[in-house]
């Protein structure tokens, strides 16, 4: 079935999820580095941290969605 090509595409798109994981880790790591330098300011910035993580993760979710669409809907 033509699904074979679509499966390859889904696998490629799935890589995006892992790359997004790099982004999320980057956000969290930099937050931690900043928080250890100035712990008193860390508590007020957790909301910003979550917003940043959410934006980074959303793009990974997009690629996951593309993978799902290639697997099931195309």
């Amino acid at each position: 079935m033509e699904g074979n090509l679509a499966h390859i595409g889904a696998g490629l798109a799935g890589m995006g999820t892992g790359i997004a994981a790099l982004g999320v880790g980057n956000v969290a790591a930099n937050f931690l580095a900043g928080a250890l330098r100035n712990p008193s300011a860390a508590a007020s910035q957790t909301a910003t941290l979550f917003i940043g993580i959410a934006f980074a993760e959303a793009l990974g979710i997009f690629s996951f969605l593309v993978a799902l669409l290639l697997m099931f809907a195309v």
């Binding site: 959410a54 959303a58 979710i61 997009f62 969605l65 799902l68």
Partner: peptide
Amino acid sequence: VSHSIRLAGNVMAGHA
């Protein structure tokens, strides 16, 4: 778009 797909995608991905 991102607001909605983020929520549904996260939940769906974990369950799948």
